[in-house]
Design a protein around this nucleic acid. Structure first.
Lengths: 216, 216
DNA sequence: ACAGGATCTTAACAGCGTTCAGATAAGTGG
DNA sequence: CCACTTATCTGAACGCTGTTAAGATCCTGT
């Protein structure tokens, strides 16, 4: 089906499915490779023909779900009427996705994808970056405030998402989380737009860096 | 010393020390209870007279380091000249602390302290909350913008810290992280101050909630 | 049809968290 | 100073974990 068609069909994909399901049921760390293998109906060592280690399976899962997050964000952004609404919509999608499956999100954010050919497209960072470009083109963000703004916005949204996902803070409804996200992003944009005469160090997206190093 | 003085003296504290050291050396999950026990010079089962499980040890460690974080923030805030400078100083301390030991910070933020008598004082959330109160008293934050502002500020700072600690983004110097923290907080405050006529759902600090439930 | 390689199984390894019965040391009341 | 209680730690054992190696099985290309 997906990869090749020998004994199982697509064991790699099936293991990722099983692992994701287990993470959803028992938390980011409350499952084992053996359990995922058993759920697929295969021996534990079979997994090692598709992943170098349990950790590699976790990283691959992270890549898969982060890609889905990027797609949701891009989709949400496309439905916005103006640039500002698009950015806010993308950010709301980020938080909505995180809270829909907090354990999966935690695993995804914590697993550093060191795999050189692990491509996340579109990466959440890049969606925010692109939306800020549109905002700048529309004149809603000055040229002196644009640099490093993607770091500021991503950080703010990521903070809302992780604070809620890790249970450090709590909101009563899902809609409340969306409203708070909107508030933070809107306020941040307002503040950034009014900045005057200061430059900021350049932040680097590690995912973009890894991709670039792979090409070069 | 700390607790009691039988065979070891303060095995509980020594185990926390060893665990923290191991987290620093090998990452949040790259160590075992047996290893910490061996480092202290004690059998693995000895730990179970002080912690109900490995997870309980992790939660206790989280409480200990988060308390230190709160103290650092309060200390930094006290050194600020005006309310705004104090809040920014506390936020810079938050990020500085996180980046000084990213693995310890990750463990601390991820471990939910369900222990009823586990008190973190001052809790990072409360430091930010108190500084925002001072800001509001000084008239630098309107009464319509104050509610839920502690959630917005904590989220923004937490996002900066975790994005960098988890390696999702990278900055070249430690000072750059401080500057970006300042930028995000300042811009957010500017934006919040200009909000008009909108109310926000009330966020709850889970740590404060647990404390309150314990008293009642 | 057959060779070769990818795929999966079985068996085994050390290490893990956790439990439990027993040894040892510290505190307590006479 | 003694017995007695209680907290503290040890040693051995349990099932489970990630990982590896050797061998069986199936697919594919020629």
């Amino acid at each position: 089906m997906g990869k090749k068609g020998y004994h199982h069909g697509d064991l790699r994909g099936a293991l990722l499915d099983a692992a994701e399901e287990l993470v959803r049921e028992r938390g980011a760390a409350g499952w084992s490779l053996r359990e995922a293998s058993a759920r697929v109906g295969v021996s534990p060592s079979a997994a090692y023909h598709h992943f170098g280690s349990r950790d590699a399976l976790v990283r691959a899962l992270s890549v898969r779900v982060l890609t889905r997050l990027g797609e949701r964000m891009a989709q949400a952004a496309a439905s916005g009427k103006d640039p500002r609404g698009s950015l806010v919509a993308a950010c709301r999608a980020y938080v909505r996705w995180t809270l829909a499956d907090p354990a999966v999100a935690r695993l995804a954010f914590a697993a550093p994808a060191r795999d050189p050919d692990a491509t996340i497209a579109p990466h959440p960072h890049d969606v925010i970056d692109a939306e800020l470009d549109r905002l700048a083109e529309a004149g809603e963000l000055g040229p002196e405030a644009r640099p490093a703004a993607e770091f500021a916005v991503w950080a703010a949204v990521h903070g809302v998402a992780t604070l809620l996902a890790d249970g450090l803070m709590r909101l009563d409804t899902e809609e409340a989380a969306g409203e708070q996200t909107e508030r933070v992003v809107e306020a941040l944009l307002t503040g950034l737009r009014q900045e005057r005469g200061r430059t900021w160090p350049t932040p680097h997206s590690t995912h973009t860096e890894r991709r670039a190093r792979d090409r070069g």
